[in-house]
Design a protein around this nucleic acid. Structure first.
Length: 310
RNA sequence: GCCGAGAUAGCUCAGUAGGUAGAGCAGCGGACUGAAAAUCCGCGUGUCCCCAGUUCAACUCUGGGUCUCGGCA
């Protein structure tokens, strides 16, 4: 089984810095597990690693998707697998680092996605049905064909209700079949590390980071993207920082209000990430404050690896 | 200094003919298998400024104090 180092944690906790440090110590290459960093041109808001950092350690799965395209987990799973093999082929250690929990899990657990892609037409049809008859309508429709899935989903969780219906209509199988099809044994010989820090400190870092993104020209970046033809409706533009700045550029909110919104939504996002990763098994957690900073954490991870790599 | 208004959740504020209190925002917890930085669900977190008094019972009434904000000086 291929070895894999995984570093997860909430946004702004310092994952990239730790990963950079560990990768240098361990002869590693970084594979970003980040649903926004994949998009070209979304630099400041996505907090992409700098050119200098990318020169120091090779980074993968950054900057390779057109921001008007819709990238998905299935694509990420495929691309990540390939990237991981590539790193191994070079005799180096792949370091999967990122805050997109679903992407990480899809790789680690080898989710079995069906061959059929997304049927946009079907999706749009279901969406307009929901608009016409309300979310309850779709939910009860799902209850007819896939009662188990309906039971697990709240009628208001339109995304998932629609997805479950899509799977049923496309494959005539309940969505739970996908879950059953995922392998029970791990796909990689993975060691997982989770980074955290006291909540108030994390929030302070988030606010600081948003301020420096603004100072670095986030507004100009979004403006440029829109002018170069990126649709404000594009998935990439729904990301934190972009969504709110688009609103500002449209004149719907003031600059100050947009900044506050970004901060608030990023705090909420960090909380959701923590909830997600808390549930993940076999994570070795490091509190960055308790451990004594980025370098100390990286050192600890290296020590941990040394003891576990035999 | 005088006059007036106020002090209740992290913030802005509502409220109780006396029976230990509730909205919005913020926050906290949770779910999550092809949009996931997305989507969705749940939860008031409180020395009701302080000290006395009246009362079976005071956040509420009375007295005193402290602080804040207006106005006049």
């Amino acid at each position: 089984m291929e070895k894999l180092l995984v570093i997860v944690g909430p946004t702004a906790v310092g994952k990239s810095d730790v990963a950079l440090c560990v990768s240098q110590k361990q002869n590693g290459e970084i594979i970003s597990a980040d649903s926004v960093q994949v998009y070209r041109g979304l630099d400041i808001g996505a907090a992409k690693p700098s050119a200098r950092e990318r020169k120091l350690v090779p980074h993968h799965l950054i900057d390779f998707v057109n921001p008007n395209e819709n990238y998905t987990v299935a694509g990420f799973q495929r691309d990540a697998k390939e990237a991981i093999s590539g790193v191994h082929a070079r005799g180096r250690l792949p370091v999967l680092v990122g805050g997109t929990g679903l992407y990480v899990r899809a790789v680690l657990q080898g989710f079995a996605f069906s061959e059929s892609g997304i049927d946009e037409e079907l999706r749009n049809r279901l969406r307009s049905e929901a608009e016409l008859y309300g979310p309850e309508f779709l939910h009860s429709k799902l209850a007819d064909v896939d009662p188990a899935a309906a039971e697990k989903l709240h009628p208001n969780d339109l995304r998932r209700v629609i997805r479950a219906l899509e799977v049923y209509e496309q494959t005539h199988q309940p969505i739970s079949r996908q879950v059953e099809a995922t392998p029970q044994t791990p796909v990689y010989d993975a060691v997982l590390f989770g980074l955290t820090m006291p909540r108030d400190m994390l929030y302070a870092r988030i606010e600081q980071r948003v301020d420096s993104m603004m100072a670095a020209g986030l507004v100009e970046e979004v403006d440029k993207l829109l002018h170069s033809g990126v649709s404000p409706q594009a998935k990439s533009m729904q990301s934190l920082g972009y969504k709110q700045i688009v609103k500002y550029l449209k004149g719907e909110v003031s600059r100050e209000a947009a900044v506050e919104l970004i901060k608030r939504d990023t705090r909420r996002f960090a909380k959701r990430q923590l909830t997600w990763f808390r549930r993940e098994h076999d994570i070795q957690w490091f509190d960055i404050l308790e451990t004594g900073g980025i370098e100390a954490v990286a050192e600890n991870i290296s020590i941990f690896l040394a003891g576990n790599c035999q």
